[in-house]
Computed example of a mutant assay.
Amino acid sequence: MNNSITNRVWVTGASSGLGLALVEQLLEQGSRVAASGRACELLQDLSRQYPESLLLLDGNLSEPYAAQEAARQITDHWGALDCLILNAGTCDYLAIDTPAPAIFEGIVSSNLSATRHCLESAWPLLQHDNPPQVVGILSRYSVLQLDDPGQPATVDNSLIQLLNSQRAALAAQAIDLTIIAPLDLKFAQVSEQVAPEQWTAHTAAEVILDRLPDRPANLVLEALHLNDLWPLPR
């Protein structure tokens, strides 16, 4: 991977599954990583292993002040970002006892808010020397539409719509946007059929990081077992 593209990376949803695997592999490749997610033993272990390269950011990013504080800490440590990876597959901060019917609504709602706040907070950090990149990673959970799915998708009820709405503004600042999501049957992201695969968090992270230097506008990620990549609250 070309570390000049992702030398300073902010990864959200980093405490388990795909987010944690992305943090691990980025550190192995020599990147400096800010990891947002619920505090966990595995992140603490990585922090001890990479004390100069890993910045742990604990805070519920669906709250604007948490995203602002995360950006402030990144500014204090590195002064800028080369890449923002919004791993919006699930939600680290859903309560363990959240009723099953409310889990998916909570995932979509919290990721809509977190994505909006992180983009706003990270924007000034991305406008520096290296051509920066924003990456949005969505799962079958977070790609769902809030409220009545029969209604038109808007920036207030659809995460993929929110990300796409930012593409032109990001491009105007020479910031590339890559959206990684399951195949959308309404709006074809790619021309060929994509079959679900037996991805693990490690293999999915490896392929994603291998593809990002090409800066594709869209990538399709279809997983057979979503809980391997984005564990739901137990």
Rank of each mutant, 00 (worst) to 15 (best):
Q161L: 07
N2A: 10
R140Q: 13
V9T: 11
A174G: 06
C40V: 11
Q198K: 13
Q127C: 14
G150S: 14
T90V: 14
L81T: 02
A66H: 07
N111H: 02
C91V: 08
D82G: 06
L138E: 04
V134I: 13
A172H: 09
A39D: 15
L232E: 04
G30N: 09
A181E: 08
A95G: 08
T154W: 08
V135A: 02
I5M: 14
L183Q: 15
L229T: 07
A223R: 00
A204S: 10
L43G: 02
L22A: 02
G136C: 11
L94V: 04
N164L: 11
S31Y: 03
A169Q: 14
V155H: 05
Q189L: 15
T98P: 02
A171Y: 05
P216W: 11
L54R: 01
S191D: 14
P99I: 07
E63C: 10
I137H: 03
S191N: 13
T154V: 07
A70W: 04
E63W: 10
Q44M: 09
T6S: 13
M1V: 14
L56T: 09
N130E: 13
L125D: 04
D184Y: 06
A195K: 13
W10Y: 06
N60F: 12
P64E: 11
L18C: 05
L18W: 04
A223H: 00
P152T: 11
N227V: 14
A195Q: 14
Q25F: 00
L81I: 06
D184L: 09
L221H: 01
L226R: 08
L57I: 03
V9Y: 01
E197D: 05
L219C: 01
A153G: 00
W199T: 04
Y65K: 14
L125R: 00
G136I: 08
R48C: 11
L26M: 05
L163N: 00
Q29E: 10
D148M: 08
Y93E: 05
W123S: 05
A174Y: 11
D176M: 07
A88C: 12
A67T: 09
V9N: 00
G106V: 04
L42V: 12
R211W: 07
L224E: 12
L43C: 03
L221P: 02
D228R: 15
T90C: 12
D147G: 15
N111L: 06
E192V: 12
S4Q: 15
N7T: 06
C91I: 04
L232S: 10
G19T: 08
A95L: 12
V135R: 03
T203I: 09
H77E: 13
P149I: 12
L112M: 07
S31P: 01
P132I: 09
D228H: 10
T90L: 02
R32T: 11
N218Q: 15
S121N: 09
I103A: 03
A169D: 13
H77P: 01
Q29Y: 09
G37R: 01
